[in-house]
Design a protein around this nucleic acid. Structure first.
Lengths: 133, 133
DNA sequence: CTGCATCCTCTAGGATACTG
DNA sequence: CAGTATCCTAGAGGATGCAG
């Protein structure tokens, strides 16, 4: 099973030599994925729908500022939806949109890789640092 | 097929409420993936083995500084290997290590997603911006 | 050619305080 | 509770020049 991989890589590499007609769409999307908090929030919302403060508890080391901003970005991209309940005090629920759901599978394969290869990577680091020092 | 996804998400979410015994391994690895240049270089090296200057041409908007640094990090993590040829002037070849190869599949599924959903995301953005303005 | 070292800029992002 | 506004710092990262 090399076909899918190579096709995608070719598509990704096609930029080489071609004058950019605008930013590469794949890179554009990957930029969002490689955002520091986006993945964390998507995963947090994959577990269940959550409110603002619940998200802050789920991802403890995010600041309110970044939480708000990242949620806005994800909403703008159609990955999550935001529903306001005009109670008193108001509450807001965030949930994964279908588009966000569709991201879970690729994300899972990445996290799966991370989990399986983590030990190997740590070992490589130790080895490298030992040699270098 | 929800099993694999949900298992991983649970593993990822398990941190909640647990005092951290150190940084989450998955997050640790994802930090590398979400590095601005790492993925680009891995993909560039997936196509073929390349030398330093060739990599700079493959990823035109990377600076020498960042190229060197990212290559070191990838080498340290065991994702790529570096081979020096003591010619005159010297040349250095970078190639994907097996560990790096193993990343291509998860990466492909992400890029596949990006490619397929990009239009949808762009549309969502336009819609969001239109409403907001 | 490869790649450090230096300097300098710019912005992501944290802390804090305030509002509907 | 769910944000917004302001301020401010650390670190990412570009440009340049030198060296092996």
């Amino acid at each position: 099973m090399q076909s899918r991989t190579s096709v995608l890589i070719e598509g990704f590499a096609r930029r080489e030599g071609t004058e950019r007609t605008g930013p590469c769409p794949v890179r554009d999307v990957l930029d969002r994925v490689s955002d520091k908090w986006s993945i964390l929030l998507v995963v947090a919302l994959a577990v269940r729908t959550r409110r603002f403060s619940a998200l802050q508890r789920a991802v403890p080391d995010i600041s309110k500022r970044m939480l708000t901003q990242t949620l806005r970005d994800l909403e703008r991209d159609g990955l999550i939806t935001r529903q306001v309940f005009p109670t008193k005090p108001p509450s807001v629920e965030y949930r994964l949109a279908p588009l966000g759901q569709s991201l879970l599978d690729p994300l899972a394969s990445l996290m799966d890789w991370a989990g399986r290869r983590h030990a190997e990577i740590s070992a490589a680091r130790v080895r490298y640092d030992a040699t270098g020092s």
